[in-house]
């Protein structure tokens, strides 16, 4: 079925697969380097005392979201085909959680 199209099938053209794997590897290395860089930036933002917390807290949260994206799409292969359904469930879960917290923060009186 469609979910298994990215599983290893030895009959598929070997040269193509090798090229694809090399490309994947390149993406992984780049995103790994970026993630280390972003982590350093986050530490710097907190450590540098000229930045007020009003800037640095939202800033590192933004970096965290980018990191989660890298993690999911490059290291856990969500960018590949056949991950539409996990993505659907993941985003529905995020949406429901977001909606609940949003409702608490805006309209619900504690």
């Amino acid at each position: 079925m469609a979910q298994h199209t990215n599983s290893g099938n030895p009959n598929v053209d070997l040269a193509y697969r090798r090229k694809k794997n090399a490309e994947d590897m390149k993406h992984q290395v780049i995103s790994f380097a970026l993630m280390i860089f972003l982590t350093l930036v986050a530490f710097f933002a907190i450590g540098y005392d000229k930045f007020s917390p009003w800037f640095s807290v939202p800033f590192i949260l933004l970096l965290a979201i980018v990191q989660v994206g890298f993690q999911l799409y490059y290291f856990m292969h969500m960018s590949h085909k056949g991950h539409e359904l996990p993505a659907l469930f993941l985003y529905s879960g995020v949406f429901v959680a977001f909606l609940t917290i949003w409702a608490f923060m805006t309209i619900v009186w504690w």
């Binding site: 429901v96 909606l99 609940t100 409702a103 309209i107 619900v108 009186w109």
Partner: peptide, 21 residues
């Protein structure tokens, strides 16, 4: 179904905006 839970709590005192939504 996930956006309506507070209708069980109208009389808790969440205020008119929450109740209306």
């Amino acid at each position: 179904g996930f956006m309506v839970w507070a209708h069980h709590m109208f009389t808790v005192g969440m205020g008119p905006i929450a109740n209306a939504i």
